[in-house]
Every structure is written in structure tokens, then in C-alpha cells.
Amino acid sequence: MQRDSFGGLRNLLWWAAGVGLAAVVLVAALSSGQDAATILSIFSTRFLGIFIEAAPFLLLGTLASGLIEAFVTADDIARLIPRNKFASPVVGAFLGFLFPVCECGVVPVVRRLFLKGLPMSVGVAFLLSAPVINPIVLVSTYVAFGVGPILIGRFVLTIAVAVIVGWVFAFSARPEHVLRPASLVPVMGGSSDVLKLTSRKSFGTGLREALRTASDEFFDMGRYLVLGTLLAATLQTLVSQDTLLALGRGPVVSVVVMQGLAFLLSVCSTVDSFLALAFVGTFTTGSILSFLVFGPMVDIKSTLMFNGIFKPRIVFYLILLPFLLTLLTGLWINLNLPL
């Protein structure tokens, strides 16, 4: 069966990731002239720092996902989404206000919504925009930057990029080309089964089902978070900030560097504004905005999590399209706006 070849490929990827990580850790350990105990201590602190900060968001996301599975029917969502191909991704881009999840939590919710028969274009628009278009990130960005070009630019650009990528998927993607087999069946099989299953149930039963779904999803998504965090912590211990900052004043280079930094650091979207503050003095405005728009959409952590629901080719496009769009807007801002 097809599933076996996929399982084999996935195993291979996990092994490659594991071996690659071990190699990076080894190089890091050998190149920094410090003893193993010190390196392990620093690494452990950096790893647990990200994990402890991210875990609650992942849990809230999986809990939201469980509650959606138990209590929200496909009909409820269908009522919110217009049928129009152009309009539906726009609605998807704003769904974050109804399902407030960050980048760690958005993937399980999106997978759950796909199982409910959500159109692909809406799911993708939601996936890319939800980490930013929600109340928490609105507040944290306001606290860091006040009302100004960064706050407004971040929200406008995020919606624009998410809607454009959503449109691309509306025209070209069918579920069987996009999703991994395990995520796929209920979508392909039509939504009738899903609808039957999710007819209203008692609150107690629904709640216990939600808890069960939440813990399953925590284990499903948690391993991507752990692996991504291992990688991010390793890179933080290995790559010197000076190396990156030396690259940083050119209108082109700075944008690419900040996008790379956003990808590598994998900092949660609720707090990346404060990190971006540290670069305001040294980096171009376009690059700061690219960091704040691109980072929540795509980083090491979310890439690994995307890999859990989408086929590899689609994961590639989900990285490439936001990358190019934020790169272009970042460049345009640097070259045309005197900010």
C-alpha cells in the first residue's frame, strides 16, 4: 500500500533529522572550547526555556482542537465560510479571532478543521494568518511597538500574504494532492460521515472526548515541537549572533537575514515582537516587518509540524510562497518608504 512507502520515507526523514542533529551537536560541542557538562547545561536551559514557554500554547491549541472536534459541527463552520472562491480565504485569514491559537497550536486545529471538511484554501489562509491575527499577538505587538507602521504593517501584510497563498491553493490544490494519507480520508470520503459523527452530544461526553482528542494531539504535535526545539536550541548554542548581525544593513541582505533568523529561532508569535525590538536600531524597517510576518508563518518548529499533515511538496510551497512574498514586500519597503 501507498502508506508503506510513505511510512518508509517518514522514518528515513526522522532518522536523517536525528543524525543531522547529533552531528550538529557534536560539531557545536567540539568547536566551543567548553567542557561537556557546561555545554549540556546551557543546551538544557535553552531547550527547556523554549519548551516551557511553548507547551502551554500547544496545550491550549490541542484543547481548542479537541473542543472543536467534540462540539463544532462541519455545518457550523460551513455557515461561516462563504462559497465564493475569492471571498472564503479572506474569511479564513480572520478566523484566528474565533479560534485564538498561536503557531504551535494552529496546526492541530487546522488538521481538525480539514477532518471537518474545511475547504483547503480557507485552511491554508487560516494556518498562515492565525498565529498573528489573534487578540494576544495584537496586544503584544502593541506593547512592543505602539500604534505605528510596524503594528499596522504586520497585520495588513500577514492578511495579504495569507489570502494570496490561500487563493493559490483554491485554484490549484485538491485534497489528495496536498494532505498526508492519514489526514486525508475523511476529507476525500465526503463530509457525510463526519457530520453524522458530530451530531450534538451531551456536554459531559463531549468534554471527555475533547480531553481524549487533546492528549492524542499533544503527542502527535508535541514530538514536532520537541524536535524543532532541540534544533533551535542547538543552533542558538552554535551560531554566533555577531555573524548574523554583520550581514545586516543592506536593503536586500537584511531582509534575507531577518527571515533566516525568524526561521532558525522559531520564537513564538506572541512574543517575537520583543525579540524584534532588539534589532530595531541595527536593522532596516523592511527586514523587521519581514521577520514579524514571515516568522509566525514559517519556522523550523512549524515546518516540522506542517510535515505531519501535508505532503512534502506542499510543505515546500508553504515555505516558499510566504518567503518570496515577505521578501518582496520587505525589499519594496526598504527601497520606497522612508521609514
Partner: peptide, 9 residues
């Protein structure tokens, strides 16, 4: 530290 040690400087 603004958020967690990931952004420590």
C-alpha cells in the same frame, strides 16, 4: 529576557 531564554541577551 523578554519572553524566555530564546531571546536572552
Amino acid at each position: 529576557v523578554s519572553c524566555c531564554v530564546a531571546d536572552a541577551s
